[in-house]
Design a protein around this nucleic acid. Structure first.
Lengths: 127, 127
DNA sequence: TCTCATGTAACTTCATGTGTTGCTAGAGTG
DNA sequence: CACTCTAGCAACACATGAAGTTACATGAGA
């Protein structure tokens, strides 16, 4: 499948697709081929890759919208709050990764097919 | 304490302080007084207010930097992914709130005083 | 050699949170 | 009563980072 086609399906731009897929390629989850007839192909077993793997392949983007204003501070109040916050956020992030680590692409694939069967409409990609 | 003084301690602007404190006032955690000699005063018991209470008083700002691109979609793949994501994020958010719900302001206050004692420097607010 | 694809850098746009200004209203002081 | 000091609030400006876009280079088949 080409970046062009994926971009259309995702309502975005081919370059954005390439940026994202680049991370997946580096980790061997997909393979890309240049030139005529090129594009992207899957190169992993869906039941061996989890959302956590994807998240990390995508360079583990920032998870939280909140956080410490600065790590290093002279202010003891801020220091105390930072300490509490960091500890909570670390715990929560660990739980997040654990959850994501349990969801395989195969599970999503199966879920998709269940939804597709439930719809009995025409079978085109996205829509 | 005036918004002005707080802003200086927090390295920010008095109006920003007022915006934040406004949420706390609505929930009765602080009290404000206008005019000469006015400013902010605490009006809660530190051991009865948790970070969770503060978070919610501040209108529960967005917690995650990631999330579903859109809730409603025609795309069954997106639907499957959204479903998995939402479920994980909801679980994780619940854990976050639970953690925050266990940290009282009294605990932070105690932690601050411990840090202060450990430093044996002059005792000025922040620095 | 032409076309079709990815790879990549540089730039633009957009959304969101933060900071700032200007003004109003209330409360004490001289 | 005039003055000063404070919060309250709306409107605007700025900063940051994610997403989208453009332009061009590179590689592979026809």
């Amino acid at each position: 499948m080409t970046s062009e086609a994926l971009a259309r399906a995702l309502n975005t731009n081919p370059v954005v697709v390439r940026r994202l897929m680049g991370g997946l390629r580096e980790h061997g989850y997909v393979h890309s081929e240049k030139g005529h007839g090129g594009g992207w192909t899957l190169s992993c077993q869906l039941d061996r890759v989890t959302l956590r793997d994807i998240y990390e392949a995508l360079d583990a983007p920032r998870l939280f919208a909140i956080g410490n204003r600065s790590e290093e501070t002279e202010c003891l109040v801020e220091e105390a709050v930072n300490h509490a916050m960091s500890s909570v956020l670390a715990d929560v992030k660990a739980q997040f990764l654990a959850c994501f680590g349990q969801i395989t692409l195969a599970a999503l694939h199966a879920d998709f097919h269940q939804r597709l069967a439930a719809r009995h409409g025409p079978t085109t990609l996205c829509k």
